[in-house]
Nucleic acid binder design. Structure first.
Lengths: 190, 190
DNA sequence: GGGCGGGCGTGACGTTTGTCACCCCGGATT
DNA sequence: AATCCGGGGTGACAAACGTCACGCCCGCCC
């Protein structure tokens, strides 16, 4: 509904035409390859595939296509990943709707469009202190209740899992897994 | 942005006029009292106050005003609460945008508008098996890492907290707090 | 070549957690 | 009067958790 509504509004702009819409992250690249848009507007949380992942591949497949990320959650980690992935801009859904059209125009003009407050937050928070493995274990810990489960799912020894978790918890200043997950999610590191 | 976009679209409909918009749940009743709308369209997750809570009070303050809940998450528990609170309809944001206007018209006509699949899910899942206290403790456990913290925050003995948690975990078929919270959230019982 | 960090593992240790049995109380049901 | 349920509490116990020290390997970098 949201996508449809925004598309309708954008189509009312005389200089903007919506040439394609998809509902899933894993349909983005195919649709863009077919429609060859000037700008791709991507959400982050999507079924099938993250908007950030889709952006990475889209940037390789259609280098001429400018990418704008439009998301609900202003996690600094998201912003960083988006910019490193070659996005031209990063918008929050709680910005006024008028900003969307102007951001698209500015993206076409070659500017980078980033919410200033969010950019500051991204710089101040720094990037994730977690090693890839720690990140992976913490991620999996959301879906597996016990260390034994976790170890089996990751093909690791239970001891190693606990070591990774313990190390992650120290880095995140948390007193247990659950808190570590919360903190990591808040900072956009998960 | 989403609210603004939907409002713009609705204003394009000849028979619909958007008379007020607010961004916070705790501003709903005041705005409605000033604008006296025929229909109130409420999200659930809002800063300040839940849309469901706002709906309850709105139904008391302006009984003539029809209430439509428009939300991202189709949790059966949400639906139940909304209907018990006197809402005229319950829409999901992933429905097509065209359905929104028609739902508003049907609400004015006195119909109840509910996503059929969601209604079935609500009936099949049943309501929360948790006692009020268990619910409360589980809710608080999201923000307090240890039992000791939890006990202090709720003015309870640590043992009692663990008893409540244990009982909740059994009812939710979970092996620890974190899993219990996940399950309860999924079912819309939290 | 040596140092360093990441990944994987083990063993030991103390703490926390989850479970259970059992206690009391008050209100509602029968 | 007896029963049940929700709430609050205690004490004990085993299991799970989080921490630490230590070992090994590999790759990178000075």
């Amino acid at each position: 509904m949201v996508r449809g509504a925004l598309a309708s509004l954008l189509n009312l702009e005389p200089d903007i035409e919506v040439v394609a819409q998809v509902s899933r992250g894993d349909e983005v690249v195919a649709a863009a390859a077919a429609a060859i848009p000037d700008v791709a507007l991507l959400d982050i949380e999507m079924p099938g595939r993250t908007g950030l992942d889709a952006a990475d591949e889209l940037a390789r497949a259609l280098p001429a296509c400018r990418i704008l990320i439009l998301t609900t959650f202003g996690r600094p980690g998201y912003l960083r990943r988006a910019m490193e992935g070659g996005a031209a801009g990063f918008l929050l859904k709680d910005a006024p709707a008028s900003e969307l059209a102007s951001a698209i125009r500015r993206a076409i003009a070659g500017e980078r469009v980033v919410d200033p407050g969010l950019a500051a937050a991204a710089l101040s928070e720094g990037e994730s202190p977690l090693t890839p493995r720690e990140h992976e274990v913490l991620l999996a810990s959301r879906e597996h209740a016990t260390v034994a489960d976790l170890a089996q799912a990751l093909f690791l020894s239970p001891g190693t899992v606990r070591n990774h978790l313990s190390s992650a918890m120290q880095k995140l200043d948390a007193r247990n897994r659950a808190e570590a997950v919360r903190v990591a999610e808040e900072k956009g590191w998960l």
